[in-house]
Design a protein around this nucleic acid. Structure first.
Lengths: 193, 193
DNA sequence: ATTCAATCTTTACGGTGTCAAGTTTAAATT
DNA sequence: AATTTAAACTTGACACCGTAAAGATTGAAT
């Protein structure tokens, strides 16, 4: 009566178990064998769903990123947000706070694989790192709304400044005694002049 | 005739070998046993000099950070630098370029241990992350030179803005298509208004 | 009823960090 | 100069890891 066969949804169970382990004991504590054990399954079972450990980690990153994205969307659609400029301000703050509240996520999400980004503002690259894409779209909207005429190069620099600032400050947001959102609030206003 | 005993300077040899492996094949390729083998020594020999692997990695980080620091000092002492403000601009650019040229170093240096920093501008914390300390000192000098009277809180925010910007932008400096020094040059001028 | 492909188990291999016990050596002590 | 000592190294062992191969189990398709 081996009812361990055909778990039902092992793939997702592995992802959930992986997230739990990372949250409780850090990324280093995560091993394929522990994740498998947490799901009550043999140590080689994950190989039916993921070709290797890195692939499981990628799947975990994907779901974490999705959670992150939905937080950003909530911020951008907040009731107090009246235009693209305010949406960007709100997103940025939420962005930085996310990594302040989960300092380990920054390295976990980025330390192996750099996010793909294209700073060319005239085109959309749907495979780009989704939070970056969100900034890019709102910034384009802001440029339209503001009515200021900018060259392609100027727009690109504007994007690097605002998103680079957010992503950059996020990397220090988890440090003790560092209030990264202050920098954001002050500098972002100068970015979006 | 075992002339492997008393290597002479195994501690430093291990550090050098470790740096070489990291530069050639990345941090993941570094194992205590490989480092030991590269020094022609048995797999447990490192334990005479380091209590564990993490400790060897810390020593490696220390020497890398020292190289980094001396680059910053060279920038700050450049012949074209006439005052503290220009020193900060030059340091920042070199700072970001260092991580653009060695993208893997950013995660290697920071992904386990966050650098210690104290943003209180009135005191010196000699154990703080050295590159941060350097910024802090030059910024204090800049505040003196500029003659502007600022409150303690305003000075602190100024520090978070400038160093946070540099350290932050460094985290994205290694990405394709991202010119982080542009952001630095534009934003730093607004920081040091 | 049989086949089949997906899912999971078992076993095995080489690599890893770390520990314990033994060996070698240079330098300190007598 | 002989002996002791402590540091620097070797050897061997252990548990854990990622991964591969081969076999067992199962629900669904034929």
């Amino acid at each position: 009566m081996k009812d361990n066969y055909h778990h039902g949804d092992l793939r997702n169970a592995l992802i959930e178990a992986g997230i739990k382990i990372i949250n409780e004991n850090g990324e280093d504590a995560l091993s394929l064998r522990k994740v498998a054990a947490a799901c009550g399954v043999s140590h080689a079972a994950p190989y039916a769903h993921f070709p290797d450990k890195e692939s499981l980690l990628s799947a975990i990153k994907e779901t974490v990123t999705n959670d992150f994205l939905s937080e950003l969307e909530k911020a951008a659609n907040g009731s107090k947000v009246k235009n693209a400029q305010e949406a960007i301000m709100a997103m940025g703050e939420r962005y930085i706070l996310f990594f302040r509240n989960n300092p380990d996520y920054f390295n976990f999400l980025f330390h192996k694989q750099k996010p793909e980004v294209h700073t060319d503002m005239s085109k959309d690259y749907p495979n780009d790192y989704a939070p970056f894409l969100m900034f890019k779209r709102y910034l384009n909207k802001y440029f339209e709304e503001s009515g200021i005429r900018l060259s392609a190069k100027e727009k690109e620099i504007g994007l690097i400044k605002t998103w680079g600032l957010v992503q950059g400050l996020s990397s220090i947001a988890g440090m003790e005694n560092v209030n990264a959102t202050i920098s954001w609030k002050v500098l972002a206003k100068e970015c979006l002049k």
